[in-house]
């Protein structure tokens, strides 16, 4: 009997794994993703607790006597040409990178998802207009567009964050649109509309939750891109202004001048950038695997 069979199935179902077990299982399936998560967690904790991690060393403190000291016991990653501790500046620089990442991804996700969803849902001229704007933004190489935006709104942490957010928006809009198109083709959405749900309700309650997975994946990958874009703009002298210790700023300027006599000035911020970008890219890949039903069982 059907009912009896169902009851038997419920009766003999194995116990559901706990949250920790599930995390361990996901980590075992995606060791690289797990490693990335650990790296990023460490990076975040170090940035948040920078004053403790660095033992209270001032990232701005200039020291004539401690100039260009190689990595050693006093300064584990050495000091720069103004005698500032490189390790401290890298740890504090992580704050800038994470800030730019969070806010710019927030901007690109907020604007991009809205444009993509509205365009796909409304269709017609709205979709046409939005897609042409997106096409136009796509026509510019990312860094050139970011440079143009910074040139217009000025140099500084906030302009850089806004610029990085804006240049990432078209990609998010495209993906949000494609995901929305696949959702609105579902019969349940038609039924919801027939039952009189407003457009806002449909978008917020039915479309958005169903396209969160791809948005989350692209957001995570975008995080790495944002760190790189901030570093690139700072390297070009248009990003985070001194004395704020940004990884890109540390790579540019005098680090280039001392590339031969004090290569660590460029190497360590470079490693920090690479680790950050690598971590977020791996995490993005892992999330894609986790959310992709075709890869779930593999």
């Amino acid at each position: 009997m059907a009912v009896g069979a169902a009851s038997a199935q419920v009766w003999f179902a194995p116990p559901q794994p706990g949250r920790l077990q599930r995390i361990v299982r996901v980590a075992r399936r995606n060791p690289l993703g797990a490693a990335a998560f650990v790296i990023l967690l460490l990076m975040t904790l170090m940035s948040v607790f920078a004053p403790i991690v660095t033992g209270g060393v001032d990232p701005y403190a200039i020291s004539t006597s401690g100039r260009l000291q190689p990595p050693g016991p006093g300064h584990i990653l050495g000091t720069d040409d103004l005698g500032r501790d490189v390790f401290t500046r890298i740890v504090y620089g992580g704050r800038i990178s994470l800030w730019v990442g969070f806010i710019s991804v927030g901007i690109s996700q907020g604007i991009g998802a809205t444009l993509g969803i509205v365009g796909a849902y409304k269709g017609g001229w709205a979709d046409f207009a939005i897609q042409r704007v997106v096409d136009a933004l796509f026509a510019f190489p990312t860094i050139i567009l970011a440079l143009a935006i910074v040139a217009v709104i000025g140099r500084g942490l906030i302009p850089v964050t806004v610029a990085v957010g804006i240049v990432s928006t078209p990609r998010v809009a495209r993906i949000a649109r494609a995901a929305t198109m696949s959702v609105i083709a579902q019969p349940y959405l038609e039924a919801t509309t027939c039952m009189g749900a407003t457009s806002v309700r449909v978008i917020l309650r039915h479309i958005l939750p169903n396209i969160m997975a791809p948005l989350l994946v692209i957001g995570t990958a975008g995080f790495g891109g944002a760190i790189l874009a901030e570093a690139s703009l700072s390297f070009l002298g248009l990003g985070t202004p001194p004395p704020q210790p940004s990884w890109g700023t540390m790579l540019s300027g005098n680090a280039q001048l001392y590339a031969r006599s004090a290569p660590y000035l460029a190497i360590f911020p470079g490693i920090a950038i690479s680790l950050g970008v690598f971590g977020f890219n791996l995490l993005g890949d892992a999330l894609r695997d986790i959310f992709d039903p075709r890869l779930r069982g593999s």
Partner: peptide
Amino acid sequence: RQGSGAGGGSGESHSLFLAD
């Protein structure tokens, strides 16, 4: 003036030292 100003007379390093 934008730029590190290494070895010169003005630039970001000079201003950072002045701020200090």
